[in-house]
Amino acid sequence: MEVRTIKVFTTVDNINLHTQVVDMSMTYGQQFGPTYLDGADVTKIKPHNSHEGKTFYVLPNDDTLRVEAFEYYHTTDPSFLGRYMSALNHTKKWKYPQVNGLTSIKWADNNCYLATALLTLQQIELKFNPPALQDAYYRARAGEAANFCALILAYCNKTVGELGDVRETMSYLFQHANLDSCKRVLNVVCKTCGQQQTTLKGVEAVMYMGTLSYEQFKKGVQIPCTCGKQATKYLVQQESPFVMMSAPPAQYELKHGTFTCASEYTGNYQCGHYKHITSKETLYCIDGALLTKSSEYKGPITDVFYKENSYTTTIK
């Protein structure tokens, strides 16, 4: 009895394709271990004539594949690729409408935090270190965002349907971005203890939790000093293409032309909904596939993004 075979390709990165001759009487799992086709788990399936010449994702289970996976995804987590594939199996079914010149995501599976993050990423200057993220990001900007969303979920250790947080998501993504040249110098002034300067680099240099107003941050924000008295913390120097200011959701007025974009969060910790506000020729609110415009805006804002380049204080 002759062994019926077909020729397929296996890959971990969709760049390096490895030619395989597979036995049609055995499952993919018996031949390769966990195997995925377009995100779908085909591990328990036997090869079919229609699979001839198709590319299958496999887990990096030998040295060659491990090197290829690390170079593309910059992670050695053995569960990463499987999590990416199972997320992709959902995100490829989502709709990605162009809204006001940006790629958004039609609401499904509690994905409003991903839509808000995706919209924000198209408006701030950011370059990702893992080629996987950078490639998928370019495709997302062009309207094909399924891979990018699935990668975000995998890097953030999230599953489809789980509630997510924009600030946490951005923080994970910033860790995989090139923020080497970003720098922030802060000064804390206390009447009792004097003053202390701190220099922050990388992710810490672009994120701040405690106030939404970048102007206020430049002037000074009140913080408790270690001595128990009130101290003032203010920005001395900022070198970065953008800054992200966050605070627990509270009524906040966004003035046209003073910011790049913002995240609105309605609801409580267990259950809520994100919308995205962007400042173009007027203010726009993007909620999944829905767009509304207004000249002014007041609502429960939790993150505001500002364009920056270089700032030095005039406070002496």
Rank of each mutant, 00 (worst) to 15 (best):
E144Y: 12
Q238A: 05
A231K: 05
Y306M: 04
E215F: 06
G143H: 04
Y137A: 05
A177F: 00
Y265V: 00
A289M: 06
G267R: 02
V12H: 09
T232M: 11
T10L: 13
I15Q: 11
V243W: 04
E144T: 05
T116Q: 09
A177C: 15
H176Y: 14
N14V: 03
L291D: 03
Y72T: 08
R141D: 05
I286P: 01
D23M: 09
H176K: 09
T75E: 09
Y284S: 01
I152Y: 01
A108T: 09
D180L: 00
Q238N: 02
V185F: 05
L290A: 12
K293E: 12
N16F: 08
F56G: 05
G228S: 03
V67C: 15
Q196N: 11
Y172M: 15
V185P: 05
R4S: 14
A40Q: 14
F174H: 07
S104G: 13
L153G: 06
Q134G: 04
R4V: 13
Q31Y: 14
T313H: 13
R184L: 04
P78G: 00
T27D: 13
A136Y: 07
T55P: 07
C190P: 03
R139K: 14
A177M: 08
D165N: 01
S310E: 15
T314C: 00
M85H: 15
R66I: 12
E71I: 09
K46C: 10
K201G: 05
F148T: 06
K191S: 14
L118F: 08
T211W: 02
R139M: 11
E204L: 05
G194N: 11
Q134P: 01
S50M: 13
R4P: 14
K158S: 00
R139L: 12
T302M: 00
D287P: 06
G164W: 03
L133S: 03
Y155C: 00
G53M: 13
G194Y: 00
N14M: 02
H256Y: 12
L88V: 07
C285M: 08
A142L: 13
L200H: 15
L17R: 11
C271I: 13
K255I: 14
L283E: 07
Q270G: 03
P300T: 11
Q30W: 15
M26R: 12
D38R: 11
L163H: 09
P130D: 09
Q222N: 10
T103L: 03
Q195T: 15
G39C: 14
T313A: 14
F259A: 03
Q20Y: 10
Y208R: 01
T314V: 13
T302K: 01
T5V: 13
T55H: 09
D77N: 10
F148R: 03
Q122V: 02
Q98C: 10
G202W: 08
A117F: 06
Q216H: 12
M85T: 09
L114V: 15
N187L: 11
N110P: 09
N14W: 05
G257F: 00
K95N: 15
F80E: 01
D41A: 13
P249R: 03
K229E: 14
A146F: 04
E125L: 05
K46I: 10
A40S: 12
P131T: 04
H90Q: 11
K293S: 13
S295N: 15
R66Q: 13
G272M: 00
E204R: 10
D165F: 01
P248L: 10
R167T: 02
F56W: 08
N14S: 10
V8K: 07
L235E: 06
L114K: 04
M24K: 09
T5R: 14
S294V: 15
K106M: 08
K307A: 13
F56P: 03
E308T: 09
N16I: 13
Q270T: 13
D23Q: 13
L81R: 06
P224V: 14
S25V: 11
K44H: 07
Y57H: 13
G299P: 07
T120I: 11
E162T: 07
A177V: 11
L235R: 03
R4I: 13
G161C: 05
G161L: 00
G210W: 00
Y252R: 07
L254H: 00
L121N: 04
L186G: 04
T27R: 10
H256C: 15
S310F: 15
S79E: 00
A150N: 09
T11M: 05
G161T: 01
C156R: 05
D77P: 03
L179M: 01
T64F: 09
C156H: 04
F217V: 09
G257H: 03
E296D: 14
S295I: 07
K183A: 07
